[in-house]
Computed example of a mutant assay.
Amino acid sequence: MSDASVTSDAPSNREAALKGLYDDIHQGNMFPFWATSTDVAHDEVQQLMATSKAVPYVWKYTDIEPILQRAAKLISMDDSERRSLILVNPGLSPKRASVSTMYTAYRLNDPDEIMPPHKHSPSAIRFGLTGQGNFTGVDGENITFGPGDMVLTPNDTWHNHGTVGGEQAVNLSVLDLPLVETLHAVHFDHHYTEIENGKEVEKKVQTPRFSENYSQEVYGQGGMMPRFVDHRRNGGFSSPMYVYRWEAMEELLDIHKDADGDPHEGIVIDYTDPVTGGPVFKTINFYVQMLRPGEKTLPQRETASLLLAPFRGKGYSIIDGDRHNWDQFDTIAIPGGCWVEHVNESPTEPVIFFGATDAPTQKALLLYKRWGRNQAGDLLRLG
């Protein structure tokens, strides 16, 4: 064989060998981590870029509420012990996730409808939207809550949900279940028991062990904390203050309504653990954000993913250059890495968001970063 024939056959032999190599890697459930521009089957660059990613999205409450009403008529507590509507991000479907680490769900309970206790490893909150009789019993503390109140149901803490007072009520939940699921650490338990006369007895309702106003009685005065109280009542998994009332948040917002605030965020107030001053959960945290009448925030980008629910007002956000309109009780998904601006078009009324962020997880892993742009468009490192 001449040198010329060997040379002419070499490219085709290499292509055949490459194809065989990629086929074997793919069939062996492996991934080749080297760059190539060759158009071959199972191309590693295409695989790398094809990973599912959350996209900016707005779920409209005007779509959600009628579905909740229909579900309430068709699905009884005999059919299921929970009746929630989970918001699934189109970029992550069919995974139960509104952004990569969290999901929001809406729950409507009919009058005086109480579900049995359960517990799980994901941490969760409930935020009241409508009705004064939303109910959560958590760790022996019965909590009735209304619009704007936030109730914690921490990791591995027994709790149950429902309504009291003879009227329907709607609340939204935020859970870190997608994060816990990624870590392969999800567990649920529905077998609630108590010890009575030395015997384990299954119960459908938790026996109260604390007063209904316990969280407020112990932690409701900022800067003062009773020393004789066990502040690790749930093993220290979360803030021991299980209910954060809207009245206190609204008063603080009113006090600061004329402050300069942050040009990239407006007025933001974090919910905190009264014992540590840190986030209410180790994995996710919650906050309220206010845009004053006519306020428009400067562009901001952060590595954390956000879920925002307009509690009051309406407006729009520019997310990675696209406009997203929102109204009261909608939910907005803002994946980490997106540039965001919020606009309150009303000349007279504020916009108030209820927000959730996975920043605590990212900060614990030293992954959190935040950028912004000034009026001139210059890039700023903010955090």
Rank of each mutant, 00 (worst) to 15 (best):
Val351Pro: 04
Gly91Asp: 11
Gly321Ser: 10
Gly337His: 03
His26Val: 06
Asp327Trp: 12
Thr303Ile: 07
Met30Pro: 03
Phe228Tyr: 12
Asn213Ile: 07
Val88Gly: 02
Pro240Ser: 13
Arg245Lys: 13
Val58Ile: 12
Ile86Ser: 05
Met115Cys: 13
Met290Trp: 03
Pro94Gln: 05
Thr331Pro: 05
Ile269Tyr: 04
Tyr106His: 06
Phe286Met: 07
Ala124Cys: 10
Thr163Leu: 01
Pro116Gly: 11
Met1Glu: 13
Phe127Ala: 08
His120Pro: 04
Phe354Val: 08
Val186Ser: 00
Gly148Asn: 02
Gly91Asn: 11
Ala248Trp: 07
Met224Ile: 15
Gln300Lys: 14
Val174Gly: 01
Ser215Val: 08
Val55Gly: 02
Lys119Met: 10
Thr193Phe: 06
Leu18Ser: 06
Gly313Leu: 02
Phe311Ile: 05
Arg381Ile: 14
Thr136Lys: 04
Tyr106Pro: 08
Ala72Ile: 00
Asp258Lys: 12
Tyr103Leu: 04
Thr361Trp: 11
Leu48Asp: 02
Asp254Ala: 14
Leu365Asn: 10
Met290Asn: 03
Asp78Phe: 04
Leu179His: 08
Gly313Arg: 03
Val45Leu: 14
Ala105Asn: 02
Leu365Thr: 08
Leu291Glu: 12
Asn142Leu: 14
Ala10Arg: 14
Gly236Lys: 11
Glu217Gln: 15
Gly166Ala: 10
Val340Asn: 05
Pro279Thr: 05
Thr136Arg: 07
Val170Asn: 00
Glu167Ser: 14
Thr104Lys: 00
Phe33Leu: 15
Ser5Met: 12
Met49Gln: 14
Asp149Leu: 05
Ile75Asn: 06
Tyr271Gly: 01
His26Thr: 07
Ser211Met: 11
Asn89Lys: 00
Thr153Asn: 00
Ala124Ser: 13
Leu306Pro: 02
Leu179Met: 12
Thr361Asp: 09
Met102Arg: 02
Tyr214Asn: 12
His264Gln: 09
Arg227Gly: 06
Gly266Pro: 07
Tyr103Pro: 00
Leu365Phe: 11
His118Leu: 07
Ile267Met: 09
Asp112Thr: 03
Phe353Cys: 05
Ala259Ser: 15
Val201Cys: 07
Leu68Cys: 01
Leu18His: 11
Ala304Tyr: 09
Trp371Val: 01
Thr163Pro: 03
Asp258Arg: 09
Val40Tyr: 05
Gly313Phe: 04
Gln216Met: 11
Ser121Val: 05
Glu81Tyr: 14
Pro263Glu: 12
Phe354His: 12
Leu172Pro: 05
Tyr57Gln: 09
Asp23Gln: 12
Arg323Phe: 06
Lys73Thr: 02
Gly294Asn: 03
Ser121Gln: 01
Val88Cys: 04
Phe127Gly: 03
Glu81Leu: 10
Phe286Lys: 10
Pro117His: 01
Gln300Ile: 14
Asn213Val: 10
Val170Thr: 11
His120Leu: 04
His26Tyr: 14
Ile86Gln: 01
Gly235Ala: 01
Cys338Tyr: 08
Tyr214Ile: 06
Ala10Trp: 13
Pro347Ile: 07
Glu65His: 07
Asp176Leu: 00
Met249Thr: 10
Ser98Ile: 01
Ser8Pro: 00
Ala364Met: 07
Gly133Val: 02
Met241Ile: 03
Pro117Ser: 02
Thr207Ile: 09
Asn134His: 06
Gln47Val: 07
Trp158Ser: 04
Lys363Met: 15
Glu349Ala: 13
Gln168Glu: 13
Gly383Asn: 15
Ile334Ser: 04
Pro208Cys: 06
Gly146His: 07
Tyr368Val: 09
Pro274Ala: 01
